[in-house]
Design a protein around this nucleic acid. Structure first.
Length: 109
DNA sequence: CTCTTGACTGAGG
DNA sequence: GCCTCAGCCAAGA
């Protein structure tokens, strides 16, 4: 079975869906989980196709806990609103207690 | 096939 | 701790 590139997006979607409620993860963590540590950008790029899917892209942020992808959401503060709605404190696009809400897919293995 | 872009990360100053 | 440069990989034109 050779569907690596094809599954790349699918894998990203799966991992994103595995993110528990009230938790967040980074692109690099997902990328590493997929074995593509250097392809963290691809994770975010794949998220472009997450629209219309059950992928909680708002739970995915960069390693700094900064909502870098909020610009891709419909509104301007929609991503922050969703995170806060899950109990995550977000101030100025920056997730508070990031180390506490951080969820590593590799840790779940 | 070549060039550009991108929701990133790590290293260096 | 903040800013800048370079590397990596995949998709689109």
């Amino acid at each position: 079975m050779k569907q690596e590139t094809l599954n790349f997006f699918e894998k990203v979607y799966e991992v994103a869906r595995l993110i528990p409620y009230g938790r967040v993860t980074s692109y690099g963590a997902i990328a590493k989980y997929l074995g593509a540590t250097r392809s963290a950008r691809m994770v975010g790029y794949a998220m472009n196709g997450s629209g219309g899917k059950d992928v909680p892209a708002h739970r995915v942020v960069n390693q700094k806990g900064l909502l870098t992808g909020k610009h891709h959401f419909d509104g301007t503060n929609l991503m922050q609103q969703l995170l806060e709605s899950e109990g995550i404190k977000v101030i100025d696009n920056q997730i508070q207690n990031f180390d506490e809400v951080f969820w590593d897919p590799s840790n779940t293995l």
